[in-house]
Design a protein around this nucleic acid. Sequence first.
DNA 1: CGAGTTTGACCAGCGC
DNA 2: GCGCTGGTCAAACTCG
Length: 326
Amino acid sequence: MNILDLGLCVKIEKKAMNSSSSSWVDSLDLNASSTKFLQLETPVSHPNTSNSLIVFGRKLSVKEESGALMEELNRANAENKKLTEMLKAMCESYNALQSQLVDLMNKNTEKELSPTKKRKSETSNNNNGNIIGNSESSSTDEEESCKKPREEIIKAKISRAYVRTELSDTSLVVKDGYQWRKYGQKVTRDNPCPRAYFKCSFAPSCPVKKKVQRSVDDQSVLVATYEGEHNHLPPSQIEATSGSSRLGSVPVGSTPVKSSGPTITLDLTNSIKSSDEARNSKPKLDSPEATQYLVEHMASSLTKDPNFTAALAAAISGRMFSTNSN
DNA sequence: CGAGTTTGACCAGCGC
DNA sequence: GCGCTGGTCAAACTCG
């Protein structure tokens, strides 16, 4: 995945949160309009320009026409400059965000390695939140695994997601596109808030488990810990593959979706439609459809990448978490 | 009535 | 061996 893309989108999203008028569409609209300006270079006259040429019932002189074009060009330059500045700001913001994320991950790793005694299974190799299988305990002792079938080593992968919820919301439910069955709840020593235990109930053979607990630092943040990897597609994608329903707006993997803070809804229906349309009929660049097309095309190319959605959500939730804990 | 949730009991790992 | 702790089970309960 293009790492710069993530930075840009995070910035745009952040901007949308801060400004009441800004939005995904607004931000991308600038690009669309800049494309519009590019069209001036083509031999075909711009609709607006041609309208202004005949509006006074006479042909404008070459001087006047070039003056208008120069003015247009200056505006394009100014816009270009503005966009360059925005891009620069986005890159800076991305770098800051990334360093904060790394900081946070380091802090979490330190916490996990702290004296708090954990079971063997949980202290296996931790690499940036992802744990690679612990072959020592999973494959060496067959007798032991027969004795303890339950201890079937899931340690293939552990990931973590932070989800902001209302404090009043005590359900401990993190909607991530999969189907979960709660099988237990426990109050742990280091956190007064109960921890809920979930198993993936969509496929009986799916080994994935999920633990959800409120953060000690910020109780409005749910910490969801996923153990193992799904051996099936998310229910939403299975539905989509069967053709019975829309391709849902539910992201893949451990990406948190339920959030009372900034909500990211990825409607892939439009993106698919637009990429199909892209092959058959391309809207004219200067029409409102063109703007819409550009926006959809950009959004679709980003949202098609499941890594993007996961990384974006992780980055945002990580930032929210660090902001609240400061 | 079936599926999902709640909750107390039980089990296993770990440190002392 | 004992106590503490986290994880899981399963009967009881709830809900649509």
